[in-house]
């Protein structure tokens, strides 16, 4: 899961200061914004783990960021002005810090927000195509439909689709003509009898 940190603060000095503290600790993209409203520009984000460090303001009514909250895992950290009273509980936020907070504490605060169970899946699968996948690939390259491939190999269409998905994942190639080139380059097709230009 991709991670992102947003730092929202009207003061450039504070924004850049927090950024400097977090940057040499987290290898995560950090986005600096002046106003909460600017979050609207990120409505397209999905499936990410996001920490939003915002400027707590008791008088300000909470803006609505459903879009970003709905499609991502969002944690909020409030930055309190010194003269602000310690935070009373607010809907999205358990965490806060002030200008008195030390850098390591702030780093800890952010790292507590990340979901530790989300380890990156290990890429254990071999890159090599299985014999069955090669059979499917050959037929794809020759221009057969999923249905025709299923009939020829005596397997279900569902299985064909899942083989095709694996082929694309392993090779990094999506289009049929791209897969055809791949098949020719790997000598899966006999180019003596077929003119490759007709296939690609």
């Amino acid at each position: 899961m991709n991670r992102k940190i947003f730092i929202i603060n009207s003061s450039e000095i504070i924004r850049k200061g927090i950024n400097a503290i977090l940057r040499n600790y987290f290898n995560t993209e950090i986005i600096l914004l002046e106003k909460k409203e600017e979050l609207k520009g990120f409505c397209e984000l999905t499936g990410q783990e996001i920490v939003i460090i915002y400027e707590y303001n008791a008088t300000e009514k909470t803006a609505n960021f459903q879009q970003i909250q709905k499609n991502n895992k969002v944690k909020w950290i409030a930055f309190l002005n010194d003269n602000e009273k310690p935070a009373e509980p607010r809907p999205f936020c358990k965490f806060y810090f002030t200008t008195k907070t030390q850098a390591p504490q702030l780093q800890k605060l952010v790292s507590r927000c990340w979901d530790k169970t989300q380890r990156k899946p290990k890429n254990t699968d071999s890159e090599e195509l299985t014999t069955r996948e090669k059979d499917v690939l050959k037929l794809v390259a020759l221009g057969h439909s999923n249905k025709a491939i299923a009939e020829k190999l005596f397997i279900s269409i569902h299985t064909v689709i899942s083989h095709r998905k694996n082929i694309t994942e392993k090779t990094g190639i999506k289009s049929i003509s791209g897969l055809t080139v791949y098949a020719i380059l790997n000598n899966l097709l006999d180019t003596e009898t077929i003119n490759p230009e007709d296939l690609i």
Binding site: T171, G172, I173, K174, S175, G178, V181, Y182, L185, N186
Partner: peptide
């Protein structure tokens, strides 16, 4: 843009 990515992969990985 999908095919452009295929083209890149063909060169990066398979030529």
């Amino acid at each position: 843009d999908e095919k452009l990515n295929d083209l890149k992969n063909l060169i990066i990985k398979y030529i």
